[in-house]
Amino acid sequence: MSAHLITVDKVNKFFGTHHVLRDVSTYFNAGQVSAILGASGSGKSTLLRMLNRLERHDSGRIVVDGIEVDDELKHLDALRRELGMVFQQFNLFPHLTVLDNVSLAPRRVRKTLRADANERSMELLKRVGMEEHAHKYPFALSGGQQQRVAIARALAMNPKVMLFDEPTSALDPEMVKEVLDVIKKLAQSGMTMIIVTHEMGFAREVADRILFLDQGQVAQDAPPEVFFDAQESVRVRAFLGQVSH
């Protein structure tokens, strides 16, 4: 079990009386790109957000690279260094320039000197094609551009794993591609990624593995070829048919 980078063991989560996740057990390996699919309310975002303790699990265990996910401050600090997160709503800091958004965490957490942090941040911005916008404020950018900056910002802390929580759901259709291209490039570089998404075509193309959540449980765990092309479950086929239109 310890061979896995992330282990989730019999995890339960309630929101009030609503049982969001039911005895979920799964794992994620280094270098693997996993896509988590499922209908709204199936618990996929909650599962992702529990990995870096933005949500707490009510029972069960989560271990990330040997770090127990709990409320202990030392664990939390170590955990959040390991995991980078990209949000549906980008969540860029509106009062900071693009460059400061990316360089803030290295300067504060790793105590990197401003000049070094800025240099590295510019490299990351170049990687997501945003270096020309480094001195702009987030409000002046399109959604797709903001999300690319958010990806650079998460990468700035050199995480081992990148978590994507519906990274394209808040974007206009014409901007989805530029963000997906950046994520695709990242996947090709060997980054371990867990992506919650509604983009079926993207999941199929980029993921090594599809997790399908249904009513708080992992209903399927399959390679994309099997999941999309040899799907036996009527329910999942209906889901796929529904969302591909």
Partner: peptide, 27 residues
């Protein structure tokens, strides 16, 4: 200040002190 701002700061590994100083308080 939207909750997402604090989540973003915390997920970057910023302590609650720096989250307040750099993210919450200026906004």
């Amino acid at each position: 200040v939207p909750k997402g701002q604090i989540e973003a700061a915390r997920s970057l590994g910023l302590s609650s002190f720096y989250t307040f100083i750099d993210v919450t308080f200026p906004q």
